[in-house]
Design a protein around this nucleic acid. Structure first.
Length: 761
DNA sequence: ACGCCCCCACTTTTT
DNA sequence: GTGGGGGCGT
């Protein structure tokens, strides 16, 4: 065991505000912790201080974090400080904590403690079913929109009645009905969705004072990390838990609130003193992570936001490289540049694991992956198509889920015919009708179907066989380890055999994924003392993408900016710093949403310790068609002297021999001239990178595609829907430029150049 | 009932 | 460019 601290000498390692935060006594405490200001250290030291100095039993401390990974780290660090004294310290995410509470006490609400947790896909099929039962047109009320609205309501801790009261949308009454039916379906399936985990815990606490009393007694101290990203349901939960002794310590930074779309509200941190009278506030403003150049650049961006507490983050790491701004002609060159720079820096002594590549959307990872692959770099992608969401993995997990909770109709429907065993749509539909008519569970309805003389002989046999094999598995489910059960499922269902038979590249990759699933279950069992099926299913339902990230592996890491929260890397690349991508086009009409994008940008930039690269591509393929994006407004918000601008001069996307025009980024107040705008010369296409910042963003509708290549009459173009054609002429100018195209299929069409998906061929 | 093929919608971000 | 869902042919 490492050198443990018996007294309080570890306080010497802290700066004054940190020490104040660690040693502050009882009562509500808010720690406003700027990026890289050592908040994890403060939290763990505070836990250690409570235990060592104030004699608090670790079992009476609850700490919540945003991801399981952060929870694991905090637990490890607390153990390192406290050793075995760390005892029963509970650190978890809100969701895992609530799951634990509900497993114990949900029976008060009339649910069974064996509930399963539905993921997004499951809840969407549930929403679909709810729509059918409400007799609503799925074309107008899409399952995903319904799911979204319900989720939003749950994040605000609203039930169907609450949603009805607050419904402001035209959909209002319908959504409320769907929500009711959806909720009833969850109950029938003995299932909960993510939102329910929090909301039902709040409900439990509010309706059963004895229960909340028990937990208040249990958790004398409550610590909440990433408080800026809590939603209303979580806020109410925190209030309920802290109501007694008020030993509440919240840590957060409103500049890093990036989950408002998940219901997180910045008000929680801004109103902390109002919510918890007598609250003490400590600000941590010294950054220990980044160079001054990086910190200044990031600070300049986020300073544009209105809704924030004024604070000044500083570092003693003076100087440092200015952030490198790179403009690439397209996303391929952007990716190649990144890989080239990685090569260069590696020769300077950086390790592969020192590099992180961030992007706004998961779809952007592919190009950079290909480039890394081409140069033989080891890399890891965090997130993207989630492992547990893959069809074959979900299928096998659905078996486990159904064995654990036979009422899970969504899971049952998933496995009833996978692998294909001759049970088709009509049979399933009949079973569902029967279930509805007689008020049976789907499993019982299937049984009834087998016994019904009117059912076709073939269907009776097939369904009967399926149910019999399920029964066989059921017998063992209770006693076998999850890994052994999975092996049994694979053996008896013939799932892998069928795939092996197909012998296609896809089926082989599916088998590989299944092997990976088996391996991961073994790993789980090794790390979990009493590994049961239930614990396993909970765990996989509640994992975050980033949880599996192994920072000790020496690999380049790729992830979305969202996933990067809470991490740090010596070298950070941020790709796709373009209007429509970052800030995302879906955010740009809403000033609040733009502020959130800006915070996201800030989060990304402040992950960098030593070097920061920002890049944008003039053109990029999105959905397979070519788009031209302006540089992100966030780039223009960084003072020029903090940027080292580079342009891809080595590869022409204009006429090959000519050097491309230097990009012009307008800075407010800077006396820069109009962007270069000259007449295209023969054989040359001019691309205008400028974007107009004089008009306050957002009030210029659809201004994403200002810079478009100069098209001329006679150019051959192609359109994704209309096919190929020839440009007849151009009308108007600027954003309102229209192109008249004669298509080969016949007919001419006039298209808005800025919006159309025309591509030069 | 199955499998193939076409077409569409998809891209914010995720516990 | 891709994956899922629906429709159609066997």
């Amino acid at each position: 065991m490492m050198n443990r601290m018996s007294g309080t000498e570890f306080l010497d390692q802290l700066n004054p505000p940190q020490r104040e935060a660690v040693t502050y006594g009882g009562g509500p405490l808010l720690i406003v912790a700027g990026a890289g200001s050592g908040k994890t250290r403060v939290l763990t030291y505070r836990i250690a201080y409570l235990v060592r100095h104030l004699g608090v039993d670790p079992g009476r401390i609850l700490a919540t974090t945003f991801t399981n990974k952060a929870a694991g780290e905090m637990k490890n660090r607390a153990r390192a400080l406290l050793g075995t004294a760390a005892g029963d310290l509970w650190v978890g995410t809100f969701h895992s904590t609530c799951t634990r509470i509900l497993r114990k006490d949900i029976h008060h609400l009339g649910y069974s403690p064996g509930f399963v947790i539905y993921d997004e896909k499951d809840t969407e099929s549930l929403a679909k079913e709810a729509l059918r039962r409400c007799d609503l047109d799925e074309k107008i009320y899409t399952p995903s929109a319904m799911r979204w609205q319900i989720d939003r309501a749950k994040n605000d801790c609203l039930g169907p009645e609450g949603l009805a009261a607050s419904a402001d949308r035209a959909f209002g009454p319908q959504v409320t009905r769907v929500y009711e039916v959806y909720q009833q379906l969850l109950r029938e399936n003995n299932a909960l969705d993510f939102g329910d985990l929090i909301r039902l815990t709040v409900m439990l606490f509010e309706r059963f004072p004895k229960v909340v009393e028990w937990y208040r007694e249990k958790w004398e101290h409550v610590l909440v990390d990433e408080y800026q990203d809590t939603n209303m349901a979580q806020y109410r939960l925190v209030r309920l838990l802290a109501a007694g002794q008020q030993n509440l310590c919240c840590v957060g930074d409103e500049d890093q609130n990036i989950y408002s779309w998940r219901g997180a509200t910045i008000r929680n941190i801004l109103d902390f003193e109002k919510d918890f009278p007598g609250a003490h506030v400590v600000k941590l403003e010294e950054n220990y992570r980044s160079t001054n150049a990086i910190l200044q650049a990031a600070g300049a961006v986020v300073a544009r936001n209105r809704r924030r507490r004024e604070k000044s983050l500083w570092t003693s790491r003076s100087g440092g490289h200015p952030a490198t701004l790179y403009q690439a002609p397209n996303e391929f060159e952007e990716a190649r540049y990144v890989v080239r720079e990685i090569g260069k820096l590696r020769r300077e002594g950086f390790r592969a694991g020192d590099f992180a590549i961030f992007y706004r959307t998961n779809a952007q990872s592919r190009v950079i992956e290909e480039c890394l692959l081409a140069d033989n770099y080891a890399y890891t992608v965090v997130g993207g198509v989630k492992f547990y969401a893959r069809a074959e993995v979900k299928d096998l997990l659905a078996y486990m889920r159904v064995l654990h909770n036979p009422l899970d109709a969504v899971g049952l429907k998933r496995i009833i015919n996978s692998p294909p065993r001759g049970i088709g749509k009509t049979t399933i539909a009949r079973a569902e009708d029967l279930a509805r008519e007689r008020g049976l569970h789907l499993a019982d309805a299937l049984r009834a179907l087998v016994e019904d003389e009117r059912t076709g002989a073939a269907a009776r046999r097939k369904v009967g066989d399926f149910l019999a094999s399920l029964r066989e598995l059921q017998k063992e489910a209770g006693t076998l380890l999850p890994s052994a059960l999975l092996q049994q499922i694979i053996a008896r269902s013939g799932y892998v055999d069928k795939l092996r038979h197909q012998d296609t590249p896809e089926s082989l990759s599916r088998i590989e994924n299944i092997d990976e699933l088996v391996t991961s279950i073994y790993a789980f069992e090794e790390n979990t003392p009493d590994a049961t099926l239930g614990i396993y299913l909970d765990q996989i339902s509640l994992v975050a993408d980033v949880d599996s990230l192994d920072e000790t592996a020496d690999r380049v890491v790729l992830m979305t900016v969202h996933s990067a929260k809470g991490l740090e890397f010596p070298v950070v690349f941020m790709l796709g710093m373009e209007e429509t991508l970052f800030p995302h086009s879906l955010s740009r009409d809403d000033p609040e949403a733009v502020e959130e994008e800006r915070r996201l940008c800030y989060v990304g930039m402040t992950r960098a310790k030593d070097r920061l690269y920002l890049s944008h591509a003039v053109s990029r393929r999105v959905f397979g068609s070519l788009r031209f994006n302006d540089p992100s407004r966030f780039l223009a918000e960084i003072p020029e002297e903090l940027l080292d601008s580079q342009v891809a001069a080595d590869r022409g996307w204009a006429a090959p021999e000519r050097s491309p025009a230097r990009p012009v980024i307008h800075r407010p107040g800077a006396s820069s001239s109009r962007p270069l705008r000259r007449k295209p010369q023969d054989g040359e296409r001019v691309i205008d990178y400028s974007f107009d910042q004089s008009s306050d963003y957002g009030d210029e509708p659809g201004d994403g595609n200002a810079g478009v290549p100069a098209l001329e009459a006679g150019d051959r173009v192609s359109h994704p829907n209309l096919g190929r054609g020839t440009v007849e002429r151009l009308e108007g100018e600027g954003r309102r430029t229209r192109v008249v195209v004669r298509f080969e299929r016949g007919g001419t069409r006039t298209l808005m150049l800025a919006y159309s998906e025309l591509e030069i061929v």
